[in-house]
Design a protein around this nucleic acid. Structure first.
Lengths: 159, 159
DNA sequence: ACTTGACCTTGCCACCATGGTAAGGTTCAT
DNA sequence: ATGAACCTTACCATGGTGGCAAGGTCAAGT
């Protein structure tokens, strides 16, 4: 069901040696795990330095681009924002970086994660309490609605 | 610095009795904790039944609207989506509701919260591990960047 | 009567990362 | 030649919120 799987023929010279095999965006997508859509988006954001084009306008990617894309994907999976990823990519490509710079970004992000987790956990605690108090039967009385409708001052500790 | 604070004069009849004092959107905003912007937005979403207007086109709000707005705000603070809040408002206003319906919505949302917390926690665990491994000094060697750049298969357990 | 300033109105744009869709060009296999 | 699978660009949608612009309204002070 998969048509036109291998496009190696398009880079006829020295495909077996170290020369980059020149992948299309679809191949880059499947090898990096980043959708073609997002690859174009990252390019528009300036995260991928000048992508070469074939004569027909198709983008062509080499191994180093695939590595960058995987880098981006991993960073996204860890929840880094695009702005942070841009910073990280810069440091990655800078051989004279200080690991302290990287660590600082990571710690900032870890703090942010902790903040978000705590915010969600606070919601969860309140909600679990309300759920626990609700009979959940056919009767209309419902502590959950009562809480939502209550004056803020009358509300339970909110823990 | 606050001008025109009290607009009670605009509802001259029976302001002291039980008649709704007819608040402007700004007053409704400050009493409910919902911004004027968002009040209009919720109206556009259909969450607030027909808001009356004065002759000049200004929206006017009564106590029951303030209660609805506070209900919405509390639900938002608990992380419910607008669609869920629409459901909850419907149940709140339905005297023949079954508390089970409310509880079901709350449980669904609690599950969603748990999912989001777990996703963030997984990121946090991986990130904390990497941070722990990074010296964070002036040298360029950095396990964080190494992880981001690594083949997915070579990556640590990801726990 | 005029000005000022605080408020109201509508409407549009931006965020952020991603997906969808449309309309069209290219390549390859049948 | 036809069709399938791919590529291109460009626009719209998401969700909840904020910001800004351009204009109307109202009360108070000059």
């Amino acid at each position: 069901m998969l048509g036109r799987l291998s496009q190696e023929q398009r880079a006829p010279l020295a495909a077996s040696a170290a020369a980059p095999p020149s992948l299309t965006i679809g191949e880059a997508a499947s090898r990096s795990g980043v959708s073609a859509k997002m690859i174009r988006h990252y390019e528009a954001l300036g995260l991928l330095a000048g992508v070469a084009r074939r004569g027909n306008g198709y983008r062509q990617y080499g191994e180093r681009d695939i590595h960058s894309l995987r880098f981006i994907k991993r960073a996204r999976d860890l929840g880094f924002s695009m702005a942070e990823i841009a910073e990280l990519l810069g440091l990655w490509q800078n051989r004279r970086r200080a690991s302290a710079s990287v660590k600082r970004i990571a710690e900032r992000h870890a703090d942010e994660l902790a903040r978000r987790i705590e915010a969600l956990s606070a919601m969860q605690r309140s909600l679990e309490h309300l759920i626990h108090c609700c009979h959940g039967d056919a009767r209309p009385e419902c502590p959950i609605l009562d809480d939502l409708a209550a004056e803020p001052s009358q509300r339970r500790g909110d823990r």
